[in-house]
Structures are given as structure tokens and as C-alpha cells.
Amino acid sequence: MDQYAVFGHPIAHSRSPEIHAWFAAQTHQDLEYRAILAPLDDFEGCARAFFAAGGCGANVTVPFKLDALVFCDQLSQRARLAGAVNTLWKDAQGQIHGDNTDGIGLVRDITQQLGVSLAGKKVLLLGAGGAARGAIEPLLKAGVRHLTIANRTLSKAQQLITLFHGVESPAGRQACSWEGLAGEQFDLVVNATSASLQGELPPLPEGLLGPQSMAYDMMYAAQPTPFMRWAQQQGATRVADGLGMLIEQAAEAFFLWRGVRPPTAEIRSLLRRQL
């Protein structure tokens, strides 16, 4: 049976084994998927042992996405631009390939599962860390009209604008601080900061969301996050968390490994009920 895994530390909380077992059952794929607690100081050794023992592919979660980037022999453009790898696989020649499926998972959740077109939209991306970096190329390639990256430290947002300058897209792009957002309004606001993990909210000005706007938090929980509650108070038409992104990035990894794109609607409903 083909072997797959997810590496992380901690890892017991991971939903990936459940998600991929469901994908395998739905697509009639014969595989086994397990969670591996990798040592904080030896991701490479743990991953090499897994692939040497016949492992076919793996997901990578915190804190090893940068370690996985260095571990790979071949990188996709998405992974190079994101500066992190969350999906690994070994080819017939023994080369380890790395990709980043987080951003495409975000876009697929918004466009396919939530039914919101990104074409021609004015989009605000909050944060300039790894989560934001992984989302930029897929958002640009989804046809957005304008992308603003906002961050507490303006220089970090400006660095991302420069980094993605070469991505082919007609979208206008700009960086700004939280204060620089005053007076702007967006069709979509994506929270890629870690504020929701601490039960906090970035210091956002009023008026960013109109009655036809959507707000999306990459974090997810049983109850609406502070960002989601703020967006509802601002009058956003659609508000969503990142559970769908988690599932869609997993579906993209499954497709890279098996060449089959699994259905996601039922596992989304199942996980939502479990929350």
C-alpha cells in the first residue's frame, strides 16, 4: 500500500489523516496516510527516513515548511515564490519535489466552493508573513483587478510587492500600513495575520468593507473569529473562515500525488459538524 504522511510538531491535532483517508475512499485509491511527529532539530533526517522506507509523498505543517523548502531537489514556481513547501513527493528517479498548495487552496475555496469570482475584484491581503506570501501568486493569477498588501511594518509589505513584481498579471499592486488603509474600500479582505490565533484583530480602520464585500479569515475555529465578527459588524455580505482552505489545499496535494481530484463538499460538512 502506498505510504503518505504529514510532518509537524505538534501533530496530534492534525486533520490531514482524516481528510486524506476520506479522499482515498471517495476516489478508490489504495493508500495509507499517517501523522509523523518530527523532531524539531531533525526534520531532514525524519523525512529522509520516510522516503527511504518507500514513502511516496507527504504534507508538511508548522514549523517545518522552510525546512521542507531546503530539503527538496526540485521546486515548483509556487513554492519558490511562497518561500515555503507544504507538499512533497518522490519521482521515479528518486528526486524529491516540493510545492505549496496553500494559496491555490484559498482561491479554490473562494471561487469554487463559495462561488465568488475574483476576476476584476479589488482585494486587500492583511499580513506579510508566510501565509500571505503563499496567497499572492494564486490571487494575482485569479484575475484580481488590484491587490493591496497591508502590514503593521510597511517595509515588509513593500518587500512582497517587489518579490512578486515578475508574476504576470494586469493587476495593480500596492503596499501600505494599517493607517494607510483609511478611506479605501475593497471587494475582498483576506486576513493572513496570526491575530485570530490570539483572539485579536489587526487595528483596521472603518469603511474597508461595503455591502457587497466579502471577508475571509485563513484561520478557522468552532466560533467566528474576531476578524469575522468585525467584518459582519462592518456590513460584509459574505464572511468565511479557513476550514475550506485547509480542505482545498489538501485536495490539491492529493491531485499532485495521485492524478485524481477528490470531491470536497462532504468532508467540509463533516469537519464543520465536528468543530
Rank of each mutant, 00 (worst) to 15 (best):
A21H: 13
K121D: 12
V107S: 06
P226W: 12
I96Q: 08
G199N: 06
Q3D: 12
I149C: 04
T153W: 04
F227I: 13
G115I: 12
V70M: 12
E266K: 13
Q274P: 09
H97L: 05
K90H: 07
G57I: 07
A236D: 04
D41C: 06
L154M: 10
P262Y: 10
T193V: 08
L188V: 02
G210W: 10
L188H: 07
S76F: 00
A53S: 13
A135K: 00
A35H: 07
A119F: 14
A132V: 12
A131P: 02
R173M: 05
T225D: 14
H97N: 01
W178C: 00
F64Q: 05
G210H: 11
L163M: 04
G105I: 03
A52T: 14
K121E: 11
Q274G: 07
L181H: 01
L246C: 11
G172R: 05
A240T: 13
G210C: 12
E32W: 12
D2K: 15
Q93A: 14
D73E: 06
Q112D: 15
A135S: 04
Q3P: 05
L124Y: 14
R261P: 04
T193P: 07
D30L: 14
G115H: 09
L106W: 04
G130R: 05
A131T: 02
A192D: 04
N59K: 05
F164P: 01
A265E: 15
G130F: 06
A221G: 15
T153Y: 05
P10R: 03
H9L: 10
Y220C: 10
L75R: 02
S213A: 13
L270E: 13
V123M: 10
S213E: 09
A231L: 10
L88R: 01
E206F: 12
G45E: 01
Q93K: 10
R15P: 05
A35C: 08
H28F: 14
W178D: 09
G143T: 03
L160W: 11
S117M: 09
R152H: 12
G45R: 03
L197N: 06
P263W: 15
Q95H: 15
Q232M: 13
A131H: 05
G94K: 10
G166E: 02
Q93W: 10
L31R: 15
H28A: 08
T225Y: 08
P138M: 03
T193D: 02
P226C: 12
A231V: 08
W22S: 11
C56G: 14
A58I: 07
L126K: 07
R173H: 04
E184N: 07
A21G: 13
Q26S: 04
G180F: 01
A132G: 06
A215H: 11
V190F: 02
K156R: 09
P138T: 05
Y4R: 07
V107D: 02
N191M: 03
A171K: 00
L188A: 05
H165A: 15
A221C: 14
A222S: 15
Q77W: 01
A5H: 09
A38T: 02
W89S: 01
G98V: 01
R108I: 08
G57V: 11
L81S: 03
R80G: 02
F50Q: 06
G57Q: 03
F71G: 00
I19T: 07
Q3W: 12
G172I: 02
